[in-house]
Design a protein around this nucleic acid. Sequence first.
DNA 1: CCCGTCGATGTTTACGTAAACATCAGCCAC
DNA 2: GTGGCTGATGTTTACGTAAACATCGACGGG
Lengths: 332, 332
Amino acid sequence: MADVAHLAGVSSQTVSRVSNGSQGVVEETRQRVLAAMKELGYRPNSAARALKAGEFRTLGVILFTLSTTGNVRTLEAITESAAMEGYAITLMPVAVPTQTGLHGAFTRLGELAVDGIIAIMEVHLLDAATISLPPHIQVVVADSDAGDRYSVVDTDQSEGARMAVRHLIDLGHDTVWHLTGPEGSFAAQRRADAWQRVLQQANRTVPPLVRGDWSAKSGYEAGLWLADQPGCTAVFAANDQMALGLLRALHERGKRVPQDVSVVGFDDIADASDFIPPLTTVHQDFGEVGRLCVQGVLRQIRNQAADQGTTLVPTRLVLRDSTAAPPDRRAR
Amino acid sequence: MADVAHLAGVSSQTVSRVSNGSQGVVEETRQRVLAAMKELGYRPNSAARALKAGEFRTLGVILFTLSTTGNVRTLEAITESAAMEGYAITLMPVAVPTQTGLHGAFTRLGELAVDGIIAIMEVHLLDAATISLPPHIQVVVADSDAGDRYSVVDTDQSEGARMAVRHLIDLGHDTVWHLTGPEGSFAAQRRADAWQRVLQQANRTVPPLVRGDWSAKSGYEAGLWLADQPGCTAVFAANDQMALGLLRALHERGKRVPQDVSVVGFDDIADASDFIPPLTTVHQDFGEVGRLCVQGVLRQIRNQAADQGTTLVPTRLVLRDSTAAPPDRRAR
DNA sequence: CCCGTCGATGTTTACGTAAACATCAGCCAC
DNA sequence: GTGGCTGATGTTTACGTAAACATCGACGGG
């Protein structure tokens, strides 16, 4: 900067004014400074700027994995929204979802150059970990349960699951089986709770819960078992990947979808419309979740105060070809 | 820091020494300083550190989209490797893959707090854009063509495609059709080139190239057309998503896979083993690509010199259930 | 017993920027 | 014409850290 000032024959302060587009620089001087900048290849040093300004214009995103569609799409939306607000995104994945690993990641994030943090994970994992966060760092949580300590943004899991189960009941199925996610996942828990509630309200028997781990493989294994259960004509899978494995298992066991068994998924991943058959599923608006997260942290940063409470993003049921009336109904 | 120093009754330099774990601080003093840090909730200011050190310990990753498996998995590996080296990752997605958009993104990245950049994109898109990069910023490119200007790390596309096509020929297919990616994609181009070369070397007729855009939908549309082509018993799809759509189209047209038509994909995405049928595909080691990218930039940063040339990461063919001998062979 | 040495700690300084304040020239009103 | 005002530019300073150098006390060898 000093070199630029020297070359342009002005003070460094004037260079600063030009580089920040402030008023009060006469056009001719401005041009001379710009020329000098160009000639010397000058770039403002963002560390010095951050030091002076006391803010980094950067948000940290902490998450466990990039291997789930939801995380990735939320991240993508976060990055876009942040860019529009002039904020960059620093990624901080936690390899091992243990409290120790998490604690370490948060410590590092605390030392990092971020003004706020968006955590894509469940609050209960966050609780013990955030003690190491500096107090002025604002946090918003995505993909989690109720926000009594943090501001939480999440898909309306219950609503989505209710729509899925009701759709199957409305088609005439006596009851609906449920392939849930891993234990300890609040998303899985809420979907399962809603599933059970809808069945009970409709006075249907509640079949045993079938547990998977979100992976297609676990869906396949569950499907092999479900194919042998008499009276199983409708399955609500807690995500699309498990539904994919389920479809394969049913196909291999000679069960036709949707003629013999109806399947509904959750997420509406890009490929769901090209499953065999195209999958009826609950669409999650990850983009909206991401946008709300960014708006949330930025609001907190500007107010210097933490919000609380949960914002739910609505879902919608996408009807494709994996659901139909049950076989007995069709026979009538 | 001054507050901590005051509380602990030492100088700020001693606090600095403690916070950096340098030698030459007596244990008792150290404990006193640590206690003061804890009491005051002291965090080192990374902007000041970066300003002093002249480096940010951060790498920028620039990419077009997070909606392709390859990009995401490369990014994940990059982040992990970087974390192990003590570097953080700043994400810089470019919404529109135009030179203008790219130029803007690079300008912003240049102003950002990064020591190096990993670009997940093709060199020809990079060429005009990097002029706005400050000269001391090191660049490594992933997922691209030959590196005569930059250091490039890529999957060995040709080898993978060769293995796929040879596998089908070895099974007894007269020729192999190819469903390629969008025009302008070097990855697609190299896979298509290798496909054609293998066929020519084996003295087979080269069927017309079928073009898709990487999406399952485009694979589905191509599949509807391919199902009507007489003598089409083997298709090599340039990625797994298009293969998924292809499988659906073939299924809907009553073509059995692999009995009537064999299909090979490329990527080995997580779900490929649960397609109907489980997909034979070329496995890309995105993790290795990411690791090599990080090692590459860090080496360049340490040497203060740009490397050149291309590093190719080997692929392997994963045999599953979507390939078999052609119908006529089986009939014999 | 004194001096040299070494280890622990303190003091000074610079990193690059921008806010706050200072200066200076030109212009207008009286 | 002169004083006050405005706008353009320069000067000083501080942001938080850590390297370089300075200081001080203790310990050991001659």
